[in-house]
């Protein structure tokens, strides 16, 4: 039981990292990144490949952050020229190109066979090890929360918020929004890369088909339900998401007349309904700032 809860919490913390990256990019700056899973995948493969070649996990995770961050650079340049909604679609396409590349470049990624035997975050078995892993993930997440919190309340944070609310005004006071946007994209994607790296070392087996667009939408759902632009929203939203995804596993025990096949459809249907209801009735999310809007 304890180790199972630890497993759920571990996966949740990895999603929280993704949600924090999105909070920085979308919530604080207004950049609509629909390619989160692409940076997540880049981080996962970078760290897994390095670790499989003998690099210590600490270093490989750091490298994952760097590579994922750098790969956001060209996307950032594109973002400068594009409308918000176009940018969303470009990032969606980017994630798909990443997945197809991982599938095709067998010499590097072992293609559809995937990478197995990835060194775990912490060697060891049993409940104690599971809690050590949770502690490590928690430490990383808390550090990320601290980072985002600091960013949000710094002069930098005020500028990116201003970019979100009124880009022209920022230009008018002589600041170049482009530079800030690129920085935000790189940092947010580096966070997604770290999340991917931790995921790879947690699950210890990765294959390109794990990195499909649905994962991105889960993160969006978490952020929108929790409250856009709030660090607490990212955490609470992800908790609700996990409760919902894992909860349906137990729901089957209580509602035996629903077949598992139908349950899979219902799960996605409820995700959809939640997205619609939140955008209509509670655009600020559960933890959102109720004084605004």
């Amino acid at each position: 039981m304890d180790a199972y809860l630890a497993a759920i919490v571990s996966v949740m913390l990895i999603y929280v990292l993704l949600a924090l990256g999105l909070t920085l990019q979308y919530g604080l700056t207004g950049l609509i990144n629909f390619g989160m899973v692409g940076f997540f995948a880049i981080g996962a493969y970078t760290s897994a490949l390095l670790a499989l070649h003998g690099v210590p996990v600490v270093l490989s995770v750091a490298a994952a952050a760097v590579v994922a961050g750098i790969s956001a650079w060209p996307i950032g340049l594109a973002s400068l020229r594009l409308r918000d909604d176009y940018f969303a679609i470009v990032t969606l396409g980017f994630a798909e190109i990443v997945r197809l590349t991982l599938t095709s470049e067998k010499w590097l990624t072992n293609g559809v066979q995937g990478l197995s035997r990835i060194p775990p975050i912490y060697e060891g078995t049993g409940t104690a090890a599971a809690f050590v892993i949770v502690a490590i993930l928690l430490a990383v997440t808390v550090a990320a929360i601290f980072l985002i919190h600091r960013v949000a309340h710094s002069p930098f944070g005020r500028i990116i918020a201003a970019i979100r609310d009124n880009e022209e005004a920022v230009q008018a006071i002589g600041k170049d929004p482009a530079r800030f946007k690129i920085q935000v994209l790189v940092v947010g994607s580096a966070l997604a890369g770290i999340a991917g790296a931790l995921y790879a070392h947690y699950v210890t087996y990765i294959v390109p088909e794990q990195f499909v667009a649905l994962a991105t939408f889960y993160v969006w759902m978490a952020v929108i339900m929790g409250g856009v632009g709030r660090v607490s929203g990212a955490v609470v939203g992800t908790a609700i998401l996990m409760f919902f995804l894992e909860g349906s596993r137990f729901l089957g025990d209580f509602l035996p007349w629903i077949s598992s096949v139908q349950m899979a459809s219902i799960r996605i249907g409820v995700v959809g309904l939640a997205l619609v209801l939140f955008t209509i009735y509670r655009p600020q999310g559960l933890m959102g700032d109720f004084t605004k809007r």
Partner: peptide, 15 residues
């Protein structure tokens, strides 16, 4: 799905 199966297996093993 590998990811879903990992959580399911953890539940089977741990709970």
């Amino acid at each position: 799905s590998p990811q879903a199966a990992v959580l399911a297996a953890k539940k089977l093993i741990e709970i």
